[in-house]
């Protein structure tokens, strides 16, 4: 393994047209979502990305796997500049970065079987032995192989999210982006999915970026934590250090706001 970071992001800017205030004639003004973000992620690292709604955490994630194209700045993936690559140039790279979505109900096609869903990205990539790879992915996420013939609506929320994870790991990617993947789940299935993710990171040597608004989950899972506030990096440090002594006022505010299942924590 080389020392090249898997992601090296420099001064990233990204904006969207502000359609809520579009003038009658002429183009809409743009709202800047990411305002100069720089960060670097080492291979094998697990990075938590936190922030309030509108902080730009999902936008950053989507820019990293080039579902969005930044305005300016640079994203280097394993040394290669992917900031403005077009779709044809990106396709071979897509195998190497995958995404797990927040809501498995809307990110799994209800009319396709679990087997077909997991095989989808493999077929697009022209991989051979698709069927064996699907079985392998199901094994990894702890679902019986017989689930290949089931449909998403026949599964529980936790099982559906496992299918989402299986689809992401099936192409044997180097990097996975997980965007709020446990926020729709009950605490008990949440714990199961997190345990699974932790185990997969170790077994498969994945690099993982985990977007969440829940700092408790981040502390459990992530080695480094990036705190975003209105499109800017507030703090990016080792998780342990960040929780022990948060430097930024916003990080402290986020931590204080988490309701602990504990009567000793009193809000004044």
């Amino acid at each position: 393994m080389s020392d090249t970071p898997i992601y090296d992001i420099e001064n990233l800017h990204l904006s969207f047209p502000d359609l809520a205030h579009k003038p009658l004639l002429g183009p809409a003004l743009r709202v800047e979502i990411l305002k100069g973000i720089s960060l670097s992620i080492a291979k094998g690292d697990v990075v938590g990305i936190v922030g309030g709604s509108g902080s730009g955490k999902s936008t950053l994630g989507r820019a990293m796997i080039r579902l969005l194209e930044p305005d300016s700045g640079a994203i280097r993936f394993d040394g290669q500049d992917i900031t403005h690559l077009d779709e044809d140039a990106l396709r071979p790279l897509r195998r190497r970065f995958q995404m797990i979505f927040q809501d498995p109900m809307s990110s799994l096609n209800p009319r396709r079987t679990v087997g077909a869903i997991i095989a989808g990205p493999l077929r697009l990539q022209g991989v051979d032995r698709v069927s064996a790879r699907v079985d392998q992915a199901l094994d990894h996420v702890g679902l019986p192989r017989a689930f290949r013939t089931r449909y998403p609506h026949e599964l529980s929320g936790g099982q559906r999210q496992r299918v989402g994870i299986a689809r992401a790991i099936a192409t044997e990617p180097d990097f996975i982006l997980a965007d709020e993947i446990v926020s729709g789940l009950d605490v008990s299935s949440q714990a199961q999915v997190l345990n699974l993710l932790e185990q997969l990171v170790q077994e498969l040597g994945l690099t993982l970026a985990f977007i969440s608004h829940d700092l408790s989950v981040i502390r459990r899972l992530c080695r480094h934590t990036l705190v975003l506030y209105r499109g800017e990096v507030v703090e990016y440090r080792e998780t342990q250090a960040l929780f022990d002594a948060p430097q930024a006022a916003y990080t402290r505010e986020l931590l204080d706001a988490i309701p602990l299942p504990d009567l000793e924590q009193v809000w004044d």
Partner: peptide, 19 residues
């Protein structure tokens, strides 16, 4: 079990235990 499955950031050793 439900209480044990509830995440608690102040206690890094407390693993999230599924029910």
């Amino acid at each position: 079990a439900l209480l044990a499955a509830t995440p608690k950031y102040t206690d890094p050793d407390a693993s999230l235990t599924p029910v």
